[in-house]
Nucleic acid binder design. Structure first.
Lengths: 348, 348
DNA sequence: TTGAAAGCGGTACCAA
DNA sequence: TTGGTACCGCTTTCAA
C-alpha cells in the first residue's frame, strides 16, 4: 500500500536537466524543440510510465477532454447502444465519458446537465426531455457546446443527431402494405419529436396509398423505464374494439409493440395472419419474443458515433457559425410478426 | 454566444470585501467563521449561482469526486442496471461517474482502467474480466481504491460486491425439483467465478436431493455481446441427444436459457411440460418471450448501490485494514417456463 | 474569526 | 531551440 506519488513533469525535467516547459513541449509534439530533446523526453516518459495530471491540464487550458452524456434512462437499450457508440468513438482520442440520467424528468435533467457543466465537460450530448427551448438556449448562450440526440425540441435551433423518424413511419407503413395489410393502425408515442415524426410518416404514407385514415390510437406519454408496454397493451385493446379492426399495426417502439402483441394474442387472434405488427428500435430480444417482432432498426450506436464526432469537432472548431443536423439512416428488420406472405427477407 | 466567464471565489470575495479564504471556508461549512459572514457569503453564492471549479479543487485536494466504472459491455442489461444503481447512489452526494468498456478483453480492460486512474477517479468499480490477480493487485498496491463487482478473481483478495452464486444454483435447482423435475441438467457458463458458483450450487443441491448427477453441458466461454444464446442452443441440442433426456434445465443466464428454449421448441417438445427451464438475470424481456422465462433475479441495481456505497466509504476512510465482501440476496421470479404444476407464484 | 502566502501540476507568453 | 515566470481557481497552513 505504498502510495508512491505519481511522476510529474517536474521530475522528468530534473531527471533530464531540462526545464518543465521543454518537457511539456515534447509531450505536445510541438515542433519548437529539437528532435533529439524530444526523443530523450519521450523515452524517459515511457520508461517512467508518466501520466499527465488531467486536473492541472484542465486548470491551465480550460479543457477536460471529457464529454457529458445525459439520457432519460440507462436501461433502455437504445441509450445503452448510443453510449456504446459514443465511448468507442471518443476513447481512442483520449476523451472520457461522464454519464447522467434524467429519469425523463425535466428538472432533474437540468440539474444533471448543470452538474456536468460544472465539471467543465468539453461538450454535452443530450437526449433531452425538455418541452421548451429555454434551458438549452441558456446553455448555448453560455457558450457551452451541446449536441442533441434522438428528440428535437420545438422552437429550438441546436446541433442534432437523430433518426429520420418520418422515414421510419414510411418504411413501417409501406412494409405492412406490402405484406397485404389494408387497414393499418398506428399506436403513437408521447408528444415528442420522434413520435410525431413517425406518425407523420405513417399518415403521409397512408394517404399516398389512398388507404383509409384509420383512427389513431394515442398512447399516453410514457415516463420512466416501464409503462410503455402497458400503454401498448391498452391502446391495442381499444383498436380491437373498432367495428372493423385493423389488420396491421405500426407501433411507436418495440415496448409498445410487445404490449400490443400481448393484447392481440390474448384476444385469441394470430400474428401476423390476423394482425401484423411492426415495432421500432430492434431491441436485442426482438427475435426471441413469443412472436419474433419485425422492427425498424434505429442504428443507435451510429447515432452515438456521429454525435460524438460532431461534439468533438465543435470543440476544436471553437465558434461554429451555424447548427448542424444529421440523420442516421434506418433499416427494417423483418421477422415473423409481419411476415404475412411467408417470406422473411432479413433475419438479424 | 457571449461566453461570460464563470463566477470564481475571488469574485465573491471582492464583492463582499472578504478574502478568498473566508469565502472558501463558508463554502465548506466550517465553523471557524462567524455565522454572519457565512450567511452573507452563502447568500451571494446562491445569487450568483456560483459553481466551484472541479479542476482547481482536484488540483488542490487530490480528489475528483468522481468514480470510474469499467464493465465488459454496456448492452448487457445487468451492467446497465448496475450503472443505474451506482449513479443514483453517488449523484446525490456530488459524485460523478466516468464509464469505460472492456469488451470482455483483458488488455483493453487494463488500458481503460489506467485511463480512469490517470483521471484520478477517487475510486474504481470494476466488473473485471482479468483471469489472474496481478493487474488488480498492482492497482491496489498503488493505493488506488477499487471495488470488484460480479465476478471475483481466483487468488485475489479485494473488495467485492456480488450475488450469492451458489445460492442462485441452489434456488434454481430446488425450484425445478419442486416442480417435479427429476433429471435436472445445467448449462454452465464460462470459467469464471459466477458461473462456477452457480454450478457448485446446482451440484450441491442435486446430491443433497439424491438425484443423479446429470451430464453437465459446457457452454464455451462467451465473448462479446452476442453468442451466449447460440451457446445455449448448441448445449441444449447435446442434452437432447442423451439417451434419457433431462426434464429440467437450469441455464447459466437468460441468454443461454433463451437459446436452450429455442432448441427445445425446435425439437417439437413443450416447455415446461416436457422440459422446464430456469435462467438467471431476470432481464426486462423475460416475461414476453415465446415462453415467459422463469429466472433468478440478481438485483443488479442493488449491487451497483452497494458497490458505490462501499467505494465512497473507502474513499473517506483512507486506509482500510481489510477487504470487504458483500453478497446481495437473489430471488426467483417464476414464470411459465418452469410452471409444471400450473401455479405461477410470482409474476414480475 | 480572518487573511496572506504557498502550493497543486500543468500551459502560455515572452525573453534569452 | 530553450527556460523563466506568471497564471488557472481552489485549499491549506500559519500568523495576525
Amino acid at each position: 500500500m505504498t502510495r508512491r506519488p505519481p511522476v510529474r513533469l517536474k521530475d522528468i525535467a530534473k531527471d533530464l536537466n531540462l526545464s518543465v516547459v521543454t518537457v511539456s513541449r515534447a509531450l505536445q509534439n510541438r515542433r519548437d524543440i529539437s528532435d533529439e530533446t524530444r526523443e530523450r523526453v519521450l523515452a524517459r516518459i515511457r520508461e517512467l510510465d508518466y501520466q499527465p495530471n488531467f486536473a492541472a491540464r484542465t486548470l491551465a487550458t480550460g479543457r477536460t477532454f471529457s464529454i457529458g452524456l445525459v439520457v432519460p434512462s440507462f436501461l433502455h437499450p437504445f441509450f445503452a447502444e448510443v453510449a456504446k457508440g459514443i465511448v468507442e468513438t471518443i476513447r481512442p482520442r483520449g476523451y472520457g465519458l461522464l454519464i447522467a440520467c434524467s429519469n425523463e424528468d425535466v428538472e432533474l435533467e437540468k440539474r444533471e446537465t448543470e452538474h456536468l457543466l460544472a465539471r467543465q465537460v468539453d461538450a454535452l450530448i443530450l437526449a433531452s426531455v425538455q418541452q421548451s427551448p429555454e434551458f438549452i438556449q441558456e446553455i448555448q448562450s453560455r457558450g457551452s457546446i451541446c449536441v442533441l440526440i434522438d428528440r428535437t425540441i420545438p422552437g429550438l435551433r441546436a446541433n442534432h443527431v437523430g433518426t429520420d423518424d418520418r422515414e421510419i413511419g414510411r418504411i413501417a407503413t409501406l412494409h405492412l402494405f406490402d405484406q397485404g395489410c389494408r387497414r393499418i393502425a398506428h399506436i403513437r408515442g408521447p408528444e415528442v419529436s420522434t413520435a410525431l415524426g413517425r406518425m407523420a410518416g405513417y399518415r403521409e404514407t397512408l394517404s399516398g396509398l389512398g388507404l383509409p385514415g384509420l383512427h389513431e390510437m394515442v398512447a399516453p406519454v410514457v415516463t420512466g423505464d416501464s409503462g410503455a408496454e402497458e400503454c401498448g397493451h391498452r391502446a391495442m385493446l381499444e383498436l380491437l374494439r373498432l367495428r372493423l379492426r385493423p389488420d396491421g399495426v405500426f407501433a411507436f417502439n418495440d415496448a409498445v409493440a410487445v404490449g400490443a402483441m400481448r393484447a392481440i394474442l390474448e384476444a385469441g387472434l394470430r400474428i401476423p395472419n390476423d394482425i401484423a405488427v411492426v415495432g421500432c428500435g430492434n431491441g436485442r430480444w426482438d427475435h426471441i419474443l413469443r412472436v419474433p417482432l419485425s422492427s425498424i432498426d434505429q442504428c443507435a450506436a451510429k447515432i452515438g458515433e456521429l454525435a460524438a464526432k460532431m461534439a468533438m469537432k465543435l470543440v476544436v472548431e471553437e465558434a461554429s457559425p451555424s447548427f448542424r443536423d444529421s440523420l442516421v439512416p434506418v433499416k427494417l428488420v423483418m421477422r415473423e410478426s409481419s411476415a404475412r406472405l411467408g417470406v422473411v427477407s432479413s433475419c438479424a
